[in-house]
Simulated scan of single mutants.
Amino acid sequence: MKLHGTMIENLRSAVASAERLRGRPVYSDTVRFWQALLDEAGRTDEAASGNDAPALAALMARLAQEIAARSAENGGK
């Protein structure tokens, strides 16, 4: 996965997009990107420095909630 900026910046952007688009239709590619970003962040989590780890974990949790909520809205699809 090719990202621009830090993992935290990318997660912040994804969370902001997901929140802004809550209740609106989103391309399936977008949701797949959010999930891929979350997966990549999980791999990065082990290597996160001490100061970044809490922020990374919080953003990952927020993005996971947004993805789950969107999945529930779409009947689990």
Rank of each mutant, 00 (worst) to 15 (best):
Y27A: 15
E73V: 09
L11R: 01
L38V: 02
D39K: 13
L11F: 02
E40M: 06
S71W: 01
L37T: 04
P25I: 05
I67E: 03
K77G: 02
R24A: 14
D52H: 09
A41E: 05
N10A: 10
S71N: 08
W34P: 05
R70I: 02
G42T: 03
E46C: 08
T44V: 14
A68Y: 04
M60F: 00
V15L: 04
R43P: 00
L37D: 03
E73L: 09
W34F: 15
M7K: 07
S49Q: 10
N74T: 13
P54L: 04
H4N: 12
L63Q: 01
H4Y: 11
R24G: 04
S28M: 13
V15M: 05
T6Q: 05
L63A: 07
A72M: 10
A47W: 08
G5L: 11
K2N: 11
N10P: 06
I67V: 15
S17N: 13
Q65N: 12
N51I: 10
A18D: 04
A61T: 14
L38R: 10
L21R: 12
L3K: 07
A57H: 13
A57V: 09
G5S: 04
Q65P: 00
R24L: 14
L37P: 00
L38W: 08
A64L: 03
R12D: 13
S71A: 14
G42L: 04
T6G: 12
L3A: 06
V26M: 15
G75I: 02
G75S: 11
G76A: 09
D52K: 07
K77F: 06
S13E: 15
R12Y: 02
R20P: 05
A48N: 01
T6R: 10
A69T: 07
R12C: 06
R22F: 08
V26Y: 06
L56K: 02
A72C: 04
S71K: 08
A55Y: 02
A48L: 07
A57R: 15
R43K: 14
P54V: 05
D39V: 13
A55R: 10
P54N: 10
L21T: 12
L59N: 01
E19Y: 01
A72I: 08
G50H: 04
F33L: 15
Q65A: 13
N10T: 08
D45T: 08
A36P: 00
E66V: 02
L38C: 12
E73I: 05
E46V: 13
L63C: 02
G23S: 10
Q65I: 00
S28W: 06
A57M: 05
E19L: 09
L59T: 00
N10V: 01
R12N: 13
T44M: 09
A69M: 12
R20K: 15
S71R: 09
N74E: 15
M1T: 11
A14V: 02
R20I: 03
E66M: 12
W34I: 02
G75R: 08
A47Y: 11
L63K: 00
G75E: 06
A55Q: 13
L63E: 00
A48T: 03
L11S: 01
L37H: 11
A58H: 03
R62K: 15
Q35K: 15
K2G: 09
R22K: 11
A41V: 01
D39F: 09
H4D: 11
K2T: 12
L38K: 04
M60L: 02
A64V: 03
